[in-house]
């Protein structure tokens, strides 16, 4: 091995170590037998067991999963519709503006998004009396609004790469435009929709800031629960919980990546 490639390897190792050592340490300490989260006391899976006897954690996890699944579904539907219109319906007036506006939630600070949504829900409550209690529905709506932007971007790039004459051919063969969407367009962008759903799901599962703004009493998502617990000191069962989280996110990302790869090879 020559000098240069050894150097490149070292740089690579350093970069990845920087990224992953914190995560690995969480996973390692989740198997720590000691009651002190930062002192090693031998291998054990007791904190996982304890975690599953903790109703508060389970409630929060269940709420998070419900919100993530629902908001990802809505985000996929809305994002796909937005992507379809922006790519396939020609150059209508203001298309560039819409195109830019759909991506702005990607770069908007979460604090701003959360604050504006909170203000929106409060004034909406003043106007029509809904939402009475902030919780599942408000967090779901909030998560849908920012994650549909991600879905729209994925769908847009997939559609732009897809040969438009496929849809034209279907129309030429007698398919009405709406039928063509179901016969041709949707089956061909389905992998991108799966990838979009999974991305929206993980984004929702991860989110702390926006959820904190728009949730009400008694409805804590898992990240909110962890955050509040950590303020009182790190306990080993949080390490176990974080490890499970990492597992779910990694699996979601791998499946999303595989779905995207499948679209590209098509």
């Amino acid at each position: 091995m020559n000098k240069q490639s050894r150097f490149i390897l070292a740089v690579l190792a350093f970069g990845y170590a920087f990224l992953y050592i914190p995560l690995v340490s969480v996973v390692v300490y989740s198997f720590n037998d000691s009651k002190l989260a930062t002192v090693w006391g031998g291998f054990s899976t007791r904190w996982y067991g304890e975690l599953f006897r903790n109703d508060q954690v389970l409630d929060a996890a269940f709420l998070s999963l419900r919100i993530a699944a629902t908001s990802a579904t809505f985000a996929t539907i809305l994002g796909t519709m937005a992507g379809l219109v922006l790519v396939r319906f020609g150059r209508f007036k203001g298309r560039t503006l819409f195109s830019g506006m759909i991506t702005s939630p990607l770069v908007m600070p979460e604090v701003i998004t959360g604050l504006s949504l909170l203000l929106f829900f409060v004034s909406l409550h003043g106007l029509i009396g809904w939402p009475g209690q902030r919780g599942f529905s408000t967090i779901t709506i909030a998560h849908t609004t920012f994650s549909m932007a991600f879905v729209a971007v994925i769908i847009q790039s997939r559609l732009a790469a897809m040969d438009e004459s496929l849809e034209e051919a279907a129309m030429d063969l007698g398919g009405h435009p709406l039928r063509v969407v179901f016969d041709i367009t949707l089956p061909l962008i389905a992998p991108a929709m799966v990838a979009g759903w999974l991305l929206a799901f993980t984004l929702s599962l991860d989110d702390l800031v926006i959820a904190s703004f728009v949730s009400g009493p008694g409805s804590s998502t898992l990240p909110m629960y962890i955050f509040s617990k950590v303020k009182l000191g790190v306990t080993p069962d949080i390490n176990a919980l974080a490890s499970l989280f990492i597992l779910i996110v990694v699996v979601g990302l791998i499946v999303a990546w595989m779905a995207m790869r499948k679209t590209q090879t098509r």
């Binding site: 004459s165 034209e168 051919a169 129309m171 041709i184 089956p187 061909l188």
Partner: peptide, 27 residues
């Protein structure tokens, strides 16, 4: 286009990638 007594063969052929030959032809 879907009401015209006209059909077109596209330069890219525009074969539907998610259907087999028979389904493409029968579409």
């Amino acid at each position: 286009p879907y009401e015209r007594p006209v059909n077109m063969m596209f330069q890219s052929y525009a074969i539907f990638p998610h259907m087999n030959v028979e389904k493409n032809i029968a579409y």
